[in-house]
Nucleic acid binder design. Structure first.
Lengths: 138, 138
DNA sequence: ATTATTTATTGTAATGATTACAAATTTGAT
DNA sequence: ATCAAATTTGTAATCATTACAATAAATAAT
């Protein structure tokens, strides 16, 4: 595992003070666009940083989300998934095998809702569920 | 609490054999468009059906979702919310007070994605997050 | 540079939603 | 009424996430 400077850059861009642990988590998400869970991230990093604590991973992810450096995907009722791709895109989850894909969308699609008074919308998420190509053959 | 026939009708419509417990859960959701959690539903019904088990509520909700009689809302990372309004609409959750609203949308908005081979989409969910009018005044 | 103060990390224990499972009850058919 | 299948129940387990207090590291002040 090579810690790249762009993880640090992303942190700085979102006003997060870089630390070994934060850089490692950010870097993992930048290198793995697989929508990993906190647990997956912890297990992957733990072999390289044996002092890493799972709490730190949770704390760091929460911090990154709060600052907007990553997004939280709640398509699954089991656990939260994380995504360093902060551009607008949709997600698809297979109800059979639980695989999770990105789905490109026209950027106009999501943010267009009428402002009602003081309501402030900061995020929008489009989730599709169904059966993936592989599972659909059954 | 009066158990209405339209709960039974909804169950029959989705090929679910009605029982006292299933009718009660279905009816609660038809009368309370508040996106309740399983726990809220259990506590509300428990006073009228003291033999009710929380497992039954979970089982029933899962059954209703599987048959399409209700939908599951995973906008919150804490617990699943349930909704008897199965028409296409979006949801908004306040990141400050956690309140949850319906947001009407044009029906064309959600289902329009290109079919990629055998991928079968059965549900789509549009979630907005931000700060509600009340919380935004701070 | 040394100490003081703040900030970040760690480990353990607690919480809380959901599920597994086996026993008890109810339903429906004969 | 009797048997089998379906449903409900209660308890215990699971598992993701958080609380919290202790330790360590980074930063600021003397």
């Amino acid at each position: 595992m090579r810690i790249q400077t762009n993880a640090t850059d992303r942190l700085r861009e979102f006003n997060i003070k870089p630390s070994l642990q934060r850089i490692a988590v950010m870097n993992y998400l930048l290198e793995n666009y697989t929508h990993p869970t906190a647990d997956t991230i912890f297990n992957s990093l733990y072999q390289y940083i044996p002092t890493l604590s799972k709490t730190t991973v949770y704390n760091t992810l929460k911090l990154l989300v709060k600052h907007g450096a990553i997004i939280e995907i709640t398509i699954d009722d089991k656990n939260v998934r994380y995504d360093a791709d902060i551009r607008q895109h949709a997600h698809f989850k297979c109800k059979s095998c639980s695989c999770l894909y990105d789905i490109p969308i026209k950027k106009s699609k999501l943010m267009m809702i009428k402002k009602t008074g003081n309501l402030e919308i900061t995020e929008s998420h489009l989730y599709y569920k169904g059966y993936c190509e592989k599972c659909n053959k059954n």
